[in-house]
Design a protein around this nucleic acid. Structure first.
Lengths: 209, 209
DNA sequence: TGTACATCAGTGAACGCGCGTTCACTGATGTAC
DNA sequence: TGTACATCAGTGAACGCGCGTTCACTGATGTAC
């Protein structure tokens, strides 16, 4: 995986730094957060431990970078999922399918990369949700706006909707990542949660799907 | 904290084993899961590291005991919260207040003991929710049954209700424990989530509170 | 009530290991002339 | 185009540390007679 940009050079790596973060990400994916160490990363990157100190102040900083990287990856993942949704004639159906794709993508990421998922929100210290310029969060807001524009969102709960939706799906994702749910229950429960969230969104008389 | 049951004996501890688990619990509470080690626990318990091997096979087993202990503590905590609810005349109001007390207790535990909370569901391997004889889970089922009996739960969502409620509140609790939410936002969001959950429970025409 | 002895629950020293970090160094790169 | 040299990004050895676990041991406990 080490890709020397300037061939011929065995001594200089070329892009250690990015390579280290990639290596660290893969380490965490396979063996978990605690396997992430200067020495392990150096080994995977094919480099001496001390070399990493040219690119990171210490282990803690590397950890922060990895966590950020995973958060970006998660955002990209669910966006890709949403974009895969086939557009249908009805604007409302569209909004619903796109919204559900986000939730499904979120949980699916947790299932496929449980150890990465566990780590995604570990190092966003001092950056509470409100000022969270996180990609996943922005996608969610967008999607809820779409539901609103289709009249699928009760005015009374509009403000609470993003946080409520996130919390509900996040709860499931955490349980999935922790393997606290049987594989075969996961799809059913996800379905139930997406339905529950939409029920709570719906203007008074009921659901419209 | 070490309590020799038979006074005078400095050599034999009396109830190391339980004392070790207590010490370990406190260690995790203060410094997190990674601070839990044979040597640290032995030190806090006032005993030689090797002594712990009379009571635990290895570190992993001790960890399992601590996780279980925390799960029990969480269950006791939210039950106490529910029992503190003043009974009112209306059966429905009662059911609602008791249900909400569980959610509030759950999140409050995560706030007061974030490091314990993170660890509560770590070692329930091979025991997926379905056959989960967990105290907290049973309390939730009870409470939802009460809501049902008061007509506050739509027949269509009865089966999904416990998992949906748990997931929603669990998601928030995780974020609270991770300090991803500002202190002052937590109460508001909890309120929104409890309302959202009940909205989704309510039989079609709307909410009844 | 008193003594011999098996059992149990501790001690204390040692083991090997992997870790984060440091430091003086060296080889490659690229720029000034 | 060719050479001198500063700069940069690596090496390799060493440091001290805390860890889980083992082992031969020893002091206290409680039971049999």
């Amino acid at each position: 995986m080490l890709t020397p940009l300037r061939k011929g050079s065995e001594y200089h790596h070329g892009d250690l730094g990015h390579a280290a973060i990639r290596a660290a990400r893969n380490l965490v994916d396979r063996e978990g957060w605690n396997a992430l160490g200067i020495r392990r990363v150096a080994e995977v990157a094919g480099v001496t431990p001390a070399a990493l100190y040219r690119h990171f102040e210490n282990l803690e900083q590397l950890r922060g970078e990895v966590s950020l990287q995973v958060r970006i990856e998660l955002g990209d993942f669910i966006r890709a999922r949403r974009e895969r949704v086939k557009t249908s004639r009805s604007k409302a159906t569209n909004a619903i399918l796109r919204f559900e794709a986000l939730g499904e993508g979120y949980v699916d990421f947790a299932r496929r990369h449980p150890r990465l998922f566990e780590v995604a929100f570990l190092h966003c210290d001092e950056k509470p949700i409100s000022e969270f310029s996180d990609l996943a969060w922005e996608l969610l807001q967008e999607s809820i706006q779409e539901l609103w524009e289709c009249g699928l969102l009760d005015k009374k709960v509009k403000d609470a909707a993003p946080m409520f939706a996130w919390s509900s799906v996040h709860g499931l994702a955490v349980l999935v990542a922790q393997r606290a749910l049987l594989q075969r229950d996961q799809d059913l429960v996800l379905r139930q949660i997406m339905d529950g969230v939409q029920r709570s969104f719906a203007p008074n008389s009921g659901r419209s799907r």
